[in-house]
Design a protein around this nucleic acid. Structure first.
Lengths: 162, 162
DNA sequence: ACCTTCCTTGAATATTTATTCAATGCCTTA
DNA sequence: TAAGGCATTGAATAAATATTCAAGGAAGGT
């Protein structure tokens, strides 16, 4: 797994789970997780993740993931854009997919996937904030996304491509 | 009417109707509308309006209004069909509220509520499919709903009134 | 191997945004 | 009326963020 992808993931996790007010702050948190980088890179990372900086209730600022902050200004109400809680990211490795959720959501979302039981998916295992999805042999990552997107609105926006 | 209020309104209109990439840009647009001010004031205005700066699709940045269109999105039918947050219902009894979720979702949704920590809510306890919400004294059920609806799309549709 | 080309990055810098500070005007109350 | 307290603002500045530029590294081709 590429270091950049790991870092992007860590950034998503950090922003999803705690309040970050500046890139310097994020830098420090990433250091604690073992990522060493610079503000310049964070600026680029946040841009590519479409993370927005928003005034908060306490007179400060906080970074928000594109789902919960505001909807993208696509004039047509594409149902992919609905801000839904829980889903954080989805990534692939071979015929495996890993979905990251907000803490506590993995089981709920996992059972939703199980109950739909798409053909493309052999099975799932859910922890607290992570769901492992085992795809059937010969099924591409695109096909997995398509199958899940049928009943998980907003999923496509969360897929991180290598 | 106060000049500041007029200006704030104009800012909202401009951001709602066109793409603004920087405060300098906004400054120019406001000049055209007859408002003369400085970047310092815009920074304060945007902060008070909770306007966020978000990376856009074209490699630039744009300001977005907070939770604009949240109500529009809410009455879309697909929300009821795909309750990804697991939300099932919400009911009140005195200063308590009980949220029912699909199995496994209560903890996730509960921690979302906790992390937002709205003033109106004293605390929450989550089981597997039930969240108990304790409201602050003197807070009405409507106020609780309003506070939660800020970050739980579709909540209003799930509230069961006596 | 060598040479591209593309991707990623840090340092420095440019740009943008937030805040400090002082000044002004507008209330209210004495 | 005067005096005190807010609210608002612009200029200057501080702070934060974005981009430029050059350098390394990986992947692929010859």
């Amino acid at each position: 797994m590429k270091i950049k992808t790991q870092r992007l993931n860590a950034i998503i996790q950090i922003i999803a789970n705690s309040k970050v007010g500046s890139q310097e702050e994020l830098l420090i948190m990433l250091e604690k997780e073992g990522f060493s980088t610079t503000q310049a890179t964070l600026s680029r990372d946040l841009k590519s993740l479409k993370v927005a900086k928003q005034p908060d209730q306490d007179g400060g600022y906080m970074y928000v993931l594109p789902e919960s902050g505001a909807e993208q200004a696509e004039d047509d109400a594409s149902f992919d854009e609905f801000p839904l809680s829980g889903l954080v990211s989805m990534e692939f490795s071979g015929n495996l997919a890993v979905i990251k959720t907000r803490p506590g959501f993995a089981n709920g979302l996992g059972s939703v996937i199980d109950s739909h039981g798409p053909y493309e998916i052999l099975g799932t295992i859910a922890g607290d904030d992570t769901i492992l999805i085992i795809a059937r042999e010969g099924i591409s990552s695109d096909e997995v996304v398509n199958a899940l997107a049928l009943f998980i609105p907003g999923l496509r926006n969360k897929v991180i491509r290598p």
